[in-house]
């Protein structure tokens, strides 16, 4: 972790981590896998020539929702590996000995994990354009996807980092992160009837993932304006800020072994 004296520590860590993610091959491989999934989904919806106007908007909504969800998964996978991965590979000690505050190490690693999200979003743009150009939702889809996806990526990245800080091994960190992610996604599979009433509505709005996904649907499928359902973005925004703050605060307690001595 030698190097640039004028640059802040987190910036140096970020540069190193970006090289690891993108030149090391993990980022391109994950992005390639993501493009295969998007291609399969887009091909299935676009070759249905019986799609009517509304169903075509739903197809754009589906692509954006898949992008937001998969972008979150890519980020959480990278973030969950950030500290526990170094620990498992035996490289954390060298990192902790570097003259960089631990919070800055965590900030750099979180920022590097987040770099997977804009890459996933860029990959999704051609599909969004193809499906949405005829029904005039490309602009809305880009704005909504970027907004919701960025909030969820920050939130999930921070969650993965917190779990990575305290997990006993990288395997536990990854498994816990994906388990929490699945738990957050589970309510999206509930039937429409189960989401009615105050309890269903509260669950929908309080869960950052379901709230974000519903916001995408309201704007892209129902044709609502961007501001009409802005209250659905409260939970994703609060969760993103709160979890990022928790991750940075908790990273001050980064240890060579979880719960062990410095």
């Amino acid at each position: 972790m030698s190097g640039n004296r004028s640059a802040p520590g987190w910036w140096v860590v970020l540069g190193q981590e970006l090289r690891d993610v993108w030149l090391g091959g993990r980022g391109p491989a994950l992005t390639f896998a993501f493009s295969l999934i998007l291609s399969a989904v887009a091909y299935l919806v676009a070759t249905n020539t019986a799609l009517n106007f509304l169903e075509q908007r739903e197809a754009v909504g589906l692509i954006v929702q898949v992008t937001v969800a998969m972008g979150g998964i890519l980020v959480v996978i990278a973030a969950a590996d950030a500290i526990s991965g170094e620990r498992d590979r035996g490289t954390l000690e060298a990192l902790l000995l570097a003259p960089v505050p631990r919070r800055q190490i965590a900030a750099g690693k979180l920022a590097a994990a987040l770099s997977l999200w804009p890459a996933a979003f860029l990959v999704a743009l051609p599909y969004v354009w193809f499906l949405g150009r005829g029904v005039g939702v490309v602009g809305d889809a880009v704005v909504v996807g970027l907004l919701v996806g960025s909030l969820l990526a920050l939130e999930l990245g921070a969650l993965g980092l917190v779990l990575s800080l305290f997990a006993g091994s990288n395997r536990v960190s990854l498994a816990l992160s994906l388990f929490v992610l699945l738990g957050l996604f589970a309510p999206t599979q509930l039937s429409a009837g189960a989401q009615q009433g105050w309890a269903g509505d509260l669950m929908l709005r309080a869960n950052p993932l379901t709230a974000g996904v519903h916001y995408v649907g309201r704007v892209l499928v129902d044709g609502h304006s961007l501001g009409r359902d802005a209250d659905l973005l409260v939970a994703p925004a609060v969760a993103a800020v709160a979890l990022a703050a928790v991750a940075l605060l908790a990273s001050g307690r980064m240890r060579l072994r979880p719960g062990g001595a410095r």
């Binding site: 390639f32 493009s35 399969a40």
Partner: peptide
């Protein structure tokens, strides 16, 4: 006409192909 279903195939194959080539090139270089 809002959707040209035939046009999706070059896109659905082209994007992963470009990304796959880039990932493969990087792996080879490494």
């Amino acid at each position: 006409r809002t959707l040209d279903a035939g046009g999706i195939l070059p896109l659905a194959l082209g994007v992963p192909a470009v990304l796959g080539l880039a990932a493969g090139g990087l792996a080879l270089r490494r």
